[in-house]
């Protein structure tokens, strides 16, 4: 038992040393540098989404998302999931993104896990940051 206890103590000391010298660390600890980098990672996807939103997305009739939604306005990501009569059911934001791709853009829908879909969601949501969640709202 004393042996085991001392092992525990040693391992705690090692961990403490790791944190103190900013070597690779426990998963629940991260630095400002991490936060900044992750924000940049997110921002890169937002930018990809912004590009897709403004004509970058393949569109059979050349229509693009921003033609009706400058700065992603009037997309209301904070209101999803909500009932959409165009689909006859409660739908997620990405279902409506696909609806717009298929109808005004007359193009083929994206896979729901397509990186382009994530990017479009990232841009739309980023342009709506700070707005209170109101699921179901019309």
């Amino acid at each position: 038992m004393p042996y085991k206890n001392s092992l525990k103590i040693i391992s705690r000391m090692v961990l403490a040393a790791c944190v103190g010298t900013s070597m690779p660390v426990l998963s629940d600890k991260f630095s400002q540098e991490d936060l900044d980098r992750w924000q940049q990672e997110f921002q890169s996807v937002v930018e990809r989404g912004e590009n897709l939103f403004h004509g970058g997305l393949q569109s059979r009739n050349t229509v693009s998302c921003d033609q009706c939604h400058p700065n992603g306005a009037n997309t209301h990501p904070e209101t999803y999931p909500k009932f959409q009569q165009q689909l006859g059911r409660v739908a997620a934001l990405r279902d409506m993104i696909n609806w717009c791709i298929q109808n005004p853009l007359e193009s083929d829908p994206l896979g729901l896990d397509d990186p382009d879909m994530i990017a479009l969601e990232a841009y739309i949501t980023q342009e709506r940051r700070g707005v209170e969640l109101t699921p179901g709202r019309h």
Partner: peptide
């Protein structure tokens, strides 16, 4: 009916009734 045919926009189906 709910997809490419675009029927449901006028001939409505909802979550609990149609």
């Amino acid at each position: 009916f709910v997809g490419q045919g675009r029927c449901v926009s006028c001939h409505r189906i909802e979550q609990t009734q149609a």
